[in-house]
Structure formats: structure tokens, C-alpha cells
Nucleic acid binder design. Structure first.
Lengths: 195, 195
DNA sequence: CGTCTATTTGAATGTACTCAAAAGCGGTGG
DNA sequence: CCACCGCTTTTGAGTACATTCAAATAGACG
């Protein structure tokens, strides 16, 4: 099993060798190409993913056909695309796609349930994971409510260090909630102020 | 112990009588008056709350001194005010206050840790709780990105049925991210369209 | 190297904001 | 129980920030 995931697990729990083996018998490696889709709106999210290398994006498409980026998942992030769909079996409202060639681990809901039974410590792990995700998203809502576009871009760079130079900036514009055109102007203004 | 919390716990786990007793020996009832504060920015969030009756609001104050409502917590909701502060012991960036006379149960971080040890089933309970909170907040981010103010108001009414007629509407305006003045106009427009 | 996609630039438009003031409503005390 | 005071909501005028649409330029991938 890849080193990254072990380190990631150890951040919140102390799994035994045996528990790690249970995990690795239930979570499978997978690679996807750039632009390849992992989940489409209307399908059921069957997997939760851990990104070993590369980057994913979760997005929705509104009535007008415009895309909106909900989150990115670069290395060391967990991502399900649509957690509600994953746990409920309902249709997904989100899409999930690779922005770069990406290698990941995937675990199905069935296997996650088995994991919880055989290694209850993982219940704690995902509790903490979702706890952190909750805090992360509340921070973002706070920025959306209280900050103009520049402040929201700032939160993006702090949330995903280095990512701004890896991915097309139209996705960043979408994440912070402005048009690509406006984002372009904003960046020009920012570098004029403090270069 | 109040019926509401037992029902709430049973929604996700099946606690034994013994486990319920452990819980009720660690979570204490409390009442607060309208406008009373439960957490102030800069303090450490020492408790997590379950609302038995009444309603709380979590909010931040920006550089310009304006308040922004992050969430409401009417009956049957859990709320910590600032979860990051609660778990890390860092200073809170949020405020928490009662919008109505409210009765609640509070559990400290110390007691929650004891609860996890003595009744590990609660690890699962809070895992599911945060999972749902994560989905809830991601929905809201999606609405913020893809919906105009009317659509965000619609999500609010679906998230908190009946609450719109219980609390001052300036808080609703703040929650959906518009000024009270604009919200007032918007409501007038909406009832003109489909009364 | 060519083609397709992303970014920049500009002009016209609109949505939501600020500031100011009047009207309405509700809680509290006399 | 009523009247008053303060907070909340409404209304309106002028403004700003971000959008749409269009077109030119730059850049990246196969």
C-alpha cells in the first residue's frame, strides 16, 4: 500500500498492522486520465476516493448549463463526489472529474461498512475527517458571506497551496464564484497593487 | 432525560439503556434567555449543544463590523458555535446567541471524550452527524454559487421549515447573503409573482 | 505544428449595495 | 392594558461591483 494513505490514516488514528491490512483488502487502487469522469450527475456515487497523486474536481451544472466547482481534491485529500448519494443510494447531483492524470484508492460503501465492523477504529477516523470537512466548508461559507472576491481567492490559496499554478484558472474563478473574465481583471488589479 | 434527544440519538444509533445513562450523566441541561450569548469571538468553545426547544444562531463579525449568520439551530439541531475551537482549544472566530428563550443540553469536550470511551457507539453517531452537516453545508455552497438570492431563500425555507415566521427577517437576509433592504424588496417581488 | 481551449480586453447592462428617512411592530414599564 | 420607545421593515434614489456578450490574443496538448 502506498505510503501516503498510511500517513493520512495515522494523522487521526493509530492503526495496527492488521487493521491496515483489512483496509488495504477493501480499498483498491485506480488510475484515471486527465478529463476522465469518476461520477456523473444522475448516477449513484458508489465510491469514496483517496487521492494519491493528481487532482480531482467536484462540480454541479445549473439550469443555465453553467458549471460550479464545489471542491478540489489534490494529493492527500478524500473525496466522494457526492457524499449524500454515496450514503443514501440516491441519484447524485454532482459530477466528479480528474483535472490531471490521477492515481487514487477507492472504497465502496459496502466495503466501508465491512471496514467499520472489522476495524471500528475507522469509525473514529471518518468522524474526524467529516468533522474537519464541516469546519472547512463553514469557513468557506463565512468567506462567501463576508469577503469580496479577492478575500475568497485568498482563502482558496490557503486551502490549496500551490494549486493555483497547476490548474486552469477558470476553475478557480468558478470555485470562488466569479466569471473567468472578472477573475482575470481581478488578478491584474491585485498584481498592480502588491507585486 | 428529555424525549427529543433520545429520539435524535435513535435516528442514527440504537443506544442501550445503559448507554443512554452514560450520555445523560455527561450532558447537562441548561436554559438561556432571548439574546443571551453562549459563545463570544475570541473565547474558546467549551461545549457542544443540543437544542431541545427554542433557537440559536451562529454568526461572525467582519472587518466592517457587519454580522453574518452561518447557521441556525432550532429544536432537534446540534450546534457548537465553533467546532474548530471546540476540538482544538483555539480561540473561536464565531459567536453563538439565542434568538428565543431556549432550553438545551450541553456536553463539554472532556465529557465527549469520556463518552467515546465508555460508549463507542457515539463515535458512530457523531460520524453520521458530521457527515450530514458536511452534506448540508456543501448544498449551501452550491446554492451560493449557482443560485440568485431567491433560490438561496428557497433553500433556507427547505432547510429550516417554519423558521421564516419565527425570527426577525434581517437574520434570514444575513444567512442568504443579502442586505435586509434588498431582502425586503425581494420578498415583495416574490409575492407579486406567485401569491 | 496546427487546432482547440483558455485568457485577456472592452463596452454595455444589471443586480445588489449604500445611505437616508419613514412606517410598522413588539416588548416593557407605567 | 395601554402607550411609548426602540428595533425592524419598508421605500426610494443614486452608485458600484460584477455580469454578459463579443472579439482578439495567448497558450497547451496531441
Amino acid at each position: 500500500m502506498h505510503e501516503g494513505i498510511i500517513e493520512n490514516l495515522r494523522r487521526h488514528i493509530e492503526p495496527t498492522e492488521e487493521e491496515l491490512e483489512v483496509f488495504s483488502s477493501l480499498a483498491f487502487p485506480r488510475t484515471v486520465r486527465r478529463k476522465e469522469s469518476l461520477l456523473k450527475e444522475g448516477d449513484v456515487a458508489r465510491h469514496q476516493f483517496f487521492v494519491v497523486e493528481g487532482c480531482l474536481r467536484t462540480y454541479t451544472i445549473d439550469q443555465a448549463g453553467k458549471e460550479h466547482v464545489l471542491m478540489f481534491a489534490p494529493e492527500d485529500w478524500w473525496c466522494s463526489g457526492d457524499l449524500f448519494s454515496y450514503f443514501s443510494g440516491q441519484k447524485s447531483v454532482n459530477n466528479l472529474e480528474a483535472l490531471e492524470a490521477t492515481s487514487l484508492l477507492q472504497i465502496s460503501k459496502e466495503n466501508l461498512d465491512i471496514l467499520y465492523l472489522r476495524a471500528p477504529k475507522f469509525e473514529r477516523f471518518f468522524r474526524i475527517l467529516f468533522q474537519n470537512a464541516f469546519v472547512f466548508h463553514q469557513n468557506r461559507i463565512n468567506a462567501n458571506l463576508s469577503q469580496p472576491a479577492e478575500g475568497r481567492y485568498d482563502l482558496f490559496t490557503r486551502s490549496y497551496p500551490g494549486l493555483e499554478s497547476r490548474i486552469p484558472q477558470k476553475y478557480i474563478a468558478s470555485y470562488i464564484g466569479v466569471t473567468p473574465e472578472f477573475f482575470s481583471q481581478m488578478k491584474a488589479n491585485m498584481s498592480r497593487k502588491k507585486p
